[in-house]
Design a protein around this nucleic acid. Structure first.
Lengths: 139, 139
DNA sequence: TATTGTTATACTCTATAACTATA
DNA sequence: TATAGTTATAGAGTATAACAATA
């Protein structure tokens, strides 16, 4: 008999949860004809333009990987490279109108699906779960 | 001022957590010269050989994607295709000794890193978190 | 000299469509 | 006919190394 998730501990549970969310995220992105990486990029840009170096840090990508990701997103009309007026080496990546619209829709889509997936949990547990996760990710 | 994670709700917290675990998983895989997908494949095979169709279901991959993944893993000496004696169309993917060794090490590495990342949580919260996640992923 | 970003190159990952072989 | 898997093809994602331009 295989062990239950509880018996395998928190780490295994977290990995399982991650795979679930990953697949759900990919499904939603796909429904908007976005790759998961593009969807993630758009969501990161919703608070305003970000430079390449900063984006690379946020996405844990090498700078050349990011160049390609932004190239493809730009080719699809999702983002544009804007000049940084203070530093002529740098550029700031910002959403196009189309990109911004997709970012909101994809974010909402993921939120809806996740809320559905956790709808069975009592409010108290939802709040606890949220705050515990917040503590983990901010460490 | 940007909203805190708590204010953004459970769904956003789950997405953040997922990205954290993904990066951690990728780092560990990389330390064994594995891609995240290869590491995941190896871990899935630790309980015994699995057929291609079943693997595709578990990994949410199209069969042709899986063919490529298994090809590359086989080329690296991580897995082998074994004949299915009952169905001559099918094959069962099984770990080589080297693959099995890496699977255990990668699993342990991920578990160690995740345990470290959650070490601050009191035991009661860890157990609660584990059981709540177990409920979500089994739905 | 250090930093920002791009280019060249080589793999890896993934999907769609068409195919082979067996059930 | 249906199922298990592969091949052909195309695009996307990623890293390393070398490079250009600016700070």
């Amino acid at each position: 008999m295989t062990k239950t998730i509880e018996e395998q501990g928190l780490a295994v549970a977290l990995v399982r949860l991650t795979h679930l969310v990953q697949h759900l995220f990919a499904d939603v992105a796909r429904s908007y004809e976005l790759t998961p990486q593009q969807a993630q990029l758009l969501c990161l840009l919703t608070d305003g333009p970000v430079g390449m170096a900063e984006l690379g840090r946020l996405l844990h990508l090498e700078k050349s990987s990011l160049t390609g990701l932004v190239d493809r997103a730009e080719r699809r009309g999702l983002v544009v490279r804007a000049r940084d007026l203070r530093d002529r080496r740098a550029c700031r990546i910002e959403l196009t109108d189309h990109g911004a619209q997709l970012a909101v829709q994809a974010h909402q889509g993921v939120t809806d699906r996740l809320d559905k997936a956790t709808a069975d949990l009592p409010t108290a547990e939802r709040n606890l779960l949220t705050s515990v996760i917040a503590r983990i990710v901010t460490t």
